[in-house]
Amino acid sequence: MVAIRKSNEEGHRRKFLVVVDETPECDRAIVYAAKRAARTGGIVTLLYVVVPGDFQHWLGVEDIMRAEAMEKADQTLAKASDRARSVARTEPECVVREGKTSEAIVDLIETDADIAILVLAAGLSSEGPGPLVSSIAGKAAGNFPIPVTIVPGNLDDDSIAALA
């Protein structure tokens, strides 16, 4: 069951969810979400998903790898937050989840009723728009709990600002 969105109720603000990774197109999604949030009085929620490693059989290695992954998540989110602030003077909220990316996205949407829109950016490679865009815009699109905005990866900041 999908949680009812509360972003239009009094005391709630619409949240634009961006999945942060280290792809070049991720910046396009951050810029769009920040501009849109600033224009509509919303909030940018930046999600970084740590994919767990399979190192349970090595004593201590799993803890070290998890700590390194969390440190990388914090650094990546700090950089993404700086970018959101610089383009729209908006203060994003940051969330780190562990698990499969698609499951972490849906779980966060279901637990935070203010998240109203998922913002993704399409990659420019010849292999397609990227695995996340392909999975969400593909077979899962009909069952996704909220609208998805897909920003073309080739748009510059001015073009994004005009659309947001």
Rank of each mutant, 00 (worst) to 15 (best):
E9V: 05
T149H: 11
V95W: 06
A104Y: 03
V151P: 07
R28M: 04
G53H: 07
P145T: 11
C26L: 01
V119N: 06
L47Y: 05
P147C: 03
E25W: 03
R83W: 06
P145I: 02
I146F: 01
I117S: 02
R5N: 14
V95K: 11
P145E: 04
L155V: 08
E103S: 14
A73I: 03
G53D: 12
A73E: 11
D27L: 09
K35S: 06
L118W: 07
L59W: 09
L124E: 11
E93S: 07
T40Q: 13
W58V: 15
I30C: 02
D156S: 01
V106W: 06
N143L: 08
N8M: 08
C94M: 14
P52R: 01
E9I: 05
I117M: 14
V31K: 15
V51L: 01
I136M: 08
E68S: 14
L118E: 10
I136K: 08
P147L: 01
S159P: 00
P52T: 10
E103K: 15
D82C: 03
V87Q: 07
K6S: 10
V19L: 14
V20N: 04
G130L: 00
G41D: 06
L77Y: 07
C94P: 12
R83H: 09
M70E: 15
E10F: 09
L17Y: 01
R89S: 14
R66K: 15
E68F: 07
A122E: 08
S135K: 14
L132A: 08
A137I: 00
C94G: 08
L118M: 10
A122L: 05
A29F: 03
E71A: 14
A140C: 00
I150R: 04
